[in-house]
């Protein structure tokens, strides 16, 4: 199934030639993309633009997870949907658009929200995961499952005029391993605790500008494509020189009242895997397991304090 040496078809050569001739790409990298399986969790403001470029690049299998339906108020930023598909499940609407763009990939519709019960089944079938979701409980869940199943995770978020993106768990490292590191961080290594519920704001409540979340989504596709094309998600072989782990959180600060400037993008240096991390640190194998997550441990809703008081208008 994962044929890494087959010739490309005429249609594939035609569709992908402009990216194949980029220095550093070529046929081998294109075949890696054609053999790759990517799961996009969330078909909203991040997932729509990310999916367009993931599909365009010829990723072989593309799964999309979302339980929502398209609403008219989504369309200013969720550019993979359309007015005529209002009311449809977002996953089906987005896949309709992607098939028009590129009919060659296999598209898999998961028309449900990700939950502790289905997360491992959803994620296990893919090589790389994009977190395009919109709430902290889901973000911690996705990261934990990616640690447990050894999947690289490209995570982005955006509200109002701000955006953040970071590549996590790449290359994936066995849970609890610290010796021989530093190793890449997981979501919990970077963001130990969620904000209190009154400081968590969603795009629906706090607003969002289309190009802000769009830029983050496109950047997610960019990181995903390079990881798969260059095998950055494959742990280095014994003796192979290891790229230094330099986890970077990219911050995008859009301003409505001033043009792009020196502070628009800031690359922030994050710590590597932490000994103290609940999910991937020392002793984590006893705290976090696939069976535990299914049983409700940890309790993500409780951890993120849902429903714990009125919102106060600050992120």
């Amino acid at each position: 199934q994962r044929d890494t040496s087959r010739p490309l078809t005429e249609e594939e050569l035609d569709r992908y030639s402009r990216q194949m001739i980029v220095p550093g790409m070529g046929k081998e990298a294109q075949l890696r993309l054609l053999n790759a399986k990517v799961l996009i969790i969330g078909a909203g403001g991040l997932g729509c633009p990310a999916a367009q470029y993931i599909a365009g690049a010829g990723i072989g299998t593309i799964g999309v997870v979302d339980g929502d339906v398209v609403e008219r108020s989504n369309l200013h930023r969720q550019v993979g949907h359309s007015t005529s598909r209002i009311g449809q499940p977002k996953v089906l609407s987005l896949i309709t658009h992607l098939k028009e763009l590129n009919p060659l990939p296999t598209y898999i519709a998961h028309t449900e929200h990700i939950t502790p019960l289905n997360a491992a089944d959803l994620i296990s079938g893919y090589d790389l995961i994009l977190d395009c979701t919109d709430n902290p409980a889901t973000r911690y869940l996705i990261s934990d499952i990616c640690v447990l199943l050894c999947k690289p995770l490209v995570s982005a978020a955006s509200v109002q005029t701000s955006g953040q993106i970071i590549v996590l768990n790449c290359p994936p490292t066995p849970q609890g391993l610290l010796e021989g590191g530093p190793y890449p961080p997981c979501y919990r290594c970077c963001f130990k605790k969620p904000p209190p519920a009154n400081a968590q704001l969603s795009c629906g409540e706090a607003g969002i500008l289309g190009p802000v979340v769009g830029l983050m989504g496109v950047a997610q596709a960019g990181e995903a494509i390079k990881i798969l094309a260059s095998n950055l998600h494959i742990p280095p072989a014994e003796g192979e020189e290891r790229r230094p782990v330099e986890p970077t959180l990219l911050l995008y600060s859009y301003s409505l009242t001033s043009l792009m400037g020196p502070f628009t993008f800031r690359a922030l240096k994050m710590a590597p895997r932490k000994k103290s991390c609940f999910a991937c640190g020392e002793g984590s194998q006893e705290r976090l397991t696939l069976e535990g997550v299914k049983r409700g441990e940890p309790n993500y809703e409780f951890f993120c304090g849902l429903g714990a008081g009125p919102k106060q208008g600050v992120l």
Binding site: G42, D131, C132, T133, D134, A156, A157, V159, C203
Partner: peptide
Amino acid sequence: ILFISTLHGG
């Protein structure tokens, strides 16, 4: 010194 709030929307 930079203080940033973690974002979760998308």
